[in-house]
Nucleic acid binder design. Sequence first.
DNA 1: AAGTGTAATTAGAATAATTCTAAATTAATT
DNA 2: AATTAATTTAGAATTATTCTAATTACACTT
Lengths: 145, 145
Amino acid sequence: MHLSPAYKTIFKNALEKSSLKPTKQREHIFSLILNKKDHPTADEIYTRSRETMPSISLATIYNCLETLVESGLIRQVNFERESTRYCPNLKPHAHFLCKDTGTIYDVDLPASVFDTLKKHLPKNFQPEQIDINFNGSIKKINNNS
Amino acid sequence: MHLSPAYKTIFKNALEKSSLKPTKQREHIFSLILNKKDHPTADEIYTRSRETMPSISLATIYNCLETLVESGLIRQVNFERESTRYCPNLKPHAHFLCKDTGTIYDVDLPASVFDTLKKHLPKNFQPEQIDINFNGSIKKINNNS
DNA sequence: AAGTGTAATTAGAATAATTCTAAATTAATT
DNA sequence: AATTAATTTAGAATTATTCTAATTACACTT
Ligand SMILES: [Mn+2]
Ligand SMILES: [Mn+2]
Ligand SMILES: [Zn+2]
Ligand SMILES: [Zn+2]
């Protein structure tokens, strides 16, 4: 579980831009999220982290996740009041929660969709973030010819 | 604090469609949310409710809000991990949270925007709900001539 | 190398929104 | 009136997250 040289540079630069240190724990958590591209909760990340870094604490998980979000390396995803989930996909995209399985899917969206949305805001509203969350079910595809 | 005859009918019909009873408490909470068109939390609704119905309990607030949401009379609004807020506006719209004041604004959107969003989903994804949340600041309009 | 200062990590306690439980109340039905 | 089912209620329980205070790690100076 470790970062490619390319991501290591991205990681260090993002943190140093905010004068934060690229610590072992921060890198460990970042690499875990990057390498398994789902949308884990803090607690899932805690469990996965301890497999290879048994001494890490839950408080550190929360601290590091906050740091990674603030540095722009990962995104938070919230559905209703469920635990916050974390997402390494930095391209513009929406999220779809399947209410049958609980799985969250990335839905890629062209930048134009976000631009259109912004056009509907009053001129003095200045959005910093736009979250688009779908909620529904996924129909099984019929595979019989 | 009470419902117009038109809304009283809507209220009764929506509940009876799910074989739920149009109780005093449910009507009280619904009218509070309808008459002050902001986005109150359960706790704010609790405080407002007790002004005219001092014996209502917080558990009832939560129970009634859940019932009203399930009946389609109000919507839930969630930003990050903040307390859930409730919205009486049933037209298609998005929400904008001003991070300076904490105020949530309704942003009306034409149905076409939601249709466009749906077009970007894989064909077997069947959305039941779409939440669009903006997060940012609101620039003061310069009123000097 | 030892000492200093600051940031990060850690364990565990605290918080707070929400949900749960079980009893009491209400309202409809026989 | 008695029976039943739904709703309300008070208070306890839950749980994700935040907070606190102590420890550790590490860069920089002496
Ligand atoms: Mn994402
Ligand atoms: Mn709304
Ligand atoms: Zn994602
Ligand atoms: Zn609204």
